[in-house]
Nucleic acid binder design. Structure first.
Lengths: 340, 340
DNA sequence: TTGAAAGCGATACCAG
DNA sequence: CTGGTATCGCTTTCAA
């Protein structure tokens, strides 16, 4: 790493003919006790010299950096990028920088990244991503986060409870349940589900909610009508193919995410089935473009940008007790699930 | 910002019964001159105590932080998130952290963010986003970047040339030209274009390439067949509406990005026109989901992930002369532009 | 190979 | 209000 020589505070002080202490107060005066005249002179000198405060030096003495660290599974996934967008907007308003890393859903890496984050002494660490059942790394990760919190940092999870940390929780169960109701009300009777791996809590919850929603309308979701694959576009494609190959009779398919739904739609078409015609299709999340596809995709809206903002709110707040923010979801019916 | 008390190197040294200097060498020994026995003892003690190096302190003394700063216009846009994903993957391999900010296409903010980046003393700054013609802030931004480079940092732009910095350039002109050829070869005759604001170089280049491609096939693109709006999904929608309202006769529309194409497709449908049937539609970028929409979208592939990786390659390389990497594009014909 | 000590850039306490 | 100085956590000469 080539060292970068920069203008230092000492140089500014010297050029302005004041002490370092005064220069510091003039430029970053916490309790501004500097005569206006000097303040102007120093800031001008700083400007002329192109002085930029060394954030690291400030961090060393202050003990924490004006930064929030964000860990997401995959930034190319519109779900995560929308949440990240909300986080970054809120961070900017709060005058914080964002350092970001992607775990690519490998929880071993996740632990390492959190260690690296801790080295940065950020003001908060936000982890976005579903919890895994029986994750062998879960304990190690939680330990890292707990130690960080112990040391005075704030931890916010966008995930599922229960959690010893601040938590933003999407109503996966409730949303899926409401969707089931809506779809039955539209005349759906034979349901199938394309779900991501159930070890991911998000999938388990959405499936459970959907199942219960159907049950409340006296419809039993048969196990053979549930196909499981990766929680991605390709997984949706694969799961839909499974369903089609199994020959289960279906009039409506629920995909556990919009991305899976997109893949599922393509699988249907390849099999000569028109989504929204022979078989209805619904997703979850309401990511961008769900309105632009044909037929427009029925889905459960999760306000992703707001989720990011809420996470930052928690990160910036002071409380000591871990709090949970429930983010409500709402069903959006579109052409992909016509009334029958 | 609550100070965070953490285990320090001094504590580790004390607990291990060695000097701070030795502890430092044992844990981060650049030139490893520590006896194996001590090394083991120190690292174990560090582990037990939960020691984490203070990155800021290291940065202060080393003069630069193991970080690359990335500025993108909008992380929620799949174009940028795909590039970011490539950058982050490459950064991780190189053992660098990523600090990220979004300018939201406001170039005044852009300048400020670069200043803030500089305060971090990152190893490199990567700016992703099209250049504006007559951008009043352009000079100020370039000045910031130049000063940063002067001080030993590396600057990489993912943008358009000419540039005094390292540059990753997408072949917008060539790609659009090739697309024009392909569409004419398929029998297209009456072309329209939905383009983003032309002050954005990306749009100007894509439009110019497309126009020239048509010209090379003896087709003149009339000005009335070009509609200009925001370089977003909504802009595509608006531009397409303009075209339709103008009543220009069209058999094929080129949208300057896939996102614009998605919006344009919806506008067509609302007007009772089937994209891919009455009017063909093509985009640019080949973002995710272009294959999953109906009809699948013809587009120009820009390898977004690779663009990010290339940018990092440049950021990590040592050379002093500014270099340019041209990233080739390729036409992908799909159902949205059927043979006529 | 190890340790003592001099910085790195900035803040904040304590006098003046 | 201003200046001198100890301090933050760590790396890196310079001796031993």
């Amino acid at each position: 790493m080539p060292p970068q020589h920069q203008v230092t505070l000492a140089q500014v002080a010297e050029a302005a003919g004041v002490s370092i202490a005064t220069a510091s107060r003039a430029i970053n005066g916490s309790t501004r006790k500097v005569s206006e005249e000097i303040r102007v002179r120093v800031t001008q000198t700083a400007e002329e010299l192109g002085y930029l405060p060394n954030l690291s030096a400030q961090t060393v003495v202050k003990g924490a950096s004006p930064t929030v660290a964000v860990l997401v599974s995959d930034i190319a996934d519109p779900y995560f990028s929308a949440i990240s967008s909300g986080i970054m907007a809120a961070a900017r308003q709060a005058g914080l920088m964002v350092t970001m890393a992607t775990s690519e859903r490998r929880s071993a890496d996740e632990r390492d990244m959190i260690r690296t984050f801790r080295s940065q002494r950020p003001r908060a660490i936000v982890v976005v991503g579903s919890r895994w059942d029986q994750d062998p790394q879960a304990a190690a990760i939680e330990e890292q986060l707990a130690a960080y919190q112990q040391a005075g940092g704030r931890v916010v999870l966008v995930s599922q409870g229960p959690s010893p940390f601040d938590l933003v929780e999407i109503q996966n169960f409730e949303g899926a349940k409401a969707l089931a109701h809506a779809l039955v009300d539209q005349g759906g009777q034979r349901f199938g589900v394309a779900v991501g791996y159930r070890r991911l809590r998000t999938n388990a919850d959405r499936l459970a909610g959907f199942t219960q929603g159907l049950a409340e309308r006296s419809i039993t979701l048969k196990e053979e009508a549930v196909a499981e694959a990766a929680f991605t576009r390709d997984g949706g494609y694969a799961a839909m193919r499974q369903l089609l190959e199994r020959g289960v009779e279906l009039d409506t398919v629920f995909a556990a995410s919009d991305l899976m739904a997109f893949g599922a739609a393509t699988a249907m078409r390849e099999a000569g089935v028109q989504p929204g015609a022979q078989i209805g299709l619904a997703g979850f999340d309401n990511i961008a473009l769900t309105e632009d596809v044909t037929p427009a995709l029925t889905t459960v809206d999760a306000p992703l940008g707001e989720i990011g903002r809420r996470a930052m709110d928690l990160a910036l707040s002071e409380g000591t007790e871990p709090r949970t923010v429930e983010v409500p979801t709402s069903v959006i019916l579109r052409a992909s699930t016509p009334r029958r």
